[in-house]
Design a protein around this nucleic acid. Structure first.
Lengths: 152, 152
DNA sequence: TGAATCTCGGACAGAAACGGTCGTATACTT
DNA sequence: AAGTATACGACCGTTTCTGTCCGAGATTCA
């Protein structure tokens, strides 16, 4: 399926929202949740995790909330997804504990690992800032704008 | 998580296996399943679907089985995954029926759709043949070998 | 003809991941 | 002290994924 979870989606949306409102000192989870119609409690937990991984700074108490820990340009989509969904691997046998269970025959994994790296590279090259400034729907030739150019 | 299902994995493995044994007229689902330690019945159904989508040719009866419908070079990993897991979208709100439920604010989707296309492009550029001929573990500088070169 | 082998296809059950909620403790501001 | 907001863990319902079972049709071979 190759799709990312709603949590990751929410996380990206929230960071994008924060990036779009740099003037405010801090936005509460509820603020962001209301803005997008996201379940507030869920978003809260997501933001908490992003805080724990250092992407956000939190501020408890009244008028508290969250703010980007770094410039929006310095936060990649990869970091966000990784923080929320954990390390992702395209392959099912993530070669974590004992590699491919019984079958030492997973010769597919090697080339797919390369694909995995490519995708990760794409996501790493996209910053929250890129998400914040909506790309033009069409028209403008995007040459220098090319976010990524990579070879596999 | 951005990972593909085991079914897709199995499918790729099976096609790779078929590509590696071009001499045999047809290999049964069980043959392939045994070779990799994959549940036979499950693999059978996967191969059936691949047959339905035209990637394989089936042959019932004794000594029957499956064979690649086209040259291994002409079958992309994308086709396999697409056939098994259906059309994939990175975004959760696939803009299928009514777009993003209530929230018209999913401004993230547009840039992510571009990422989606990129990934699809990568997968489309990888053929079963590429999987079959194991890539070198390391060492050899892979310049002309670059499977893909794309800009986002 | 009949037996063996293999594909086809739906139904179904167990397991895991996902999405979301609740309750409570803690921290900060006024 | 009161109100607001984060922090964190437990919990549950739903969906998706994985895998199995079973019956039916096709083909080959004896």
């Amino acid at each position: 399926m190759l799709k990312l979870t709603k949590k990751a989606d929410y996380g990206l949306m929230a960071l994008k929202y924060l990036a779009e409102h740099p003037e405010t000192p801090a936005l509460s989870a509820k603020d962001v949740a209301d803005a997008y119609g996201i379940p507030a409690q869920l978003l809260a937990k997501i933001l908490q995790r992003l805080t724990k991984t250092g992407l956000l700074r939190s501020h408890a108490g009244m008028n508290g909330g969250y703010e980007l820990a770094r410039d929006a340009r310095q936060i990649s989509a990869y970091e966000v997804i990784h923080a929320i969904d954990g390390p992702f691997f395209i392959t099912s046998c993530t070669k974590g504990a004992k590699g491919c269970d019984l079958t030492p025959s997973c010769t597919i994994k090697e080339p797919l690992a390369r694909v995995n790296d490519t995708i990760a590279g794409v996501l790493k090259s996209i910053s929250i800032q890129d998400l914040a400034e909506h790309v033009q729907p069409s028209g403008r030739p995007r040459e220098a704008q090319g976010l990524v150019a990579l070879t596999l």
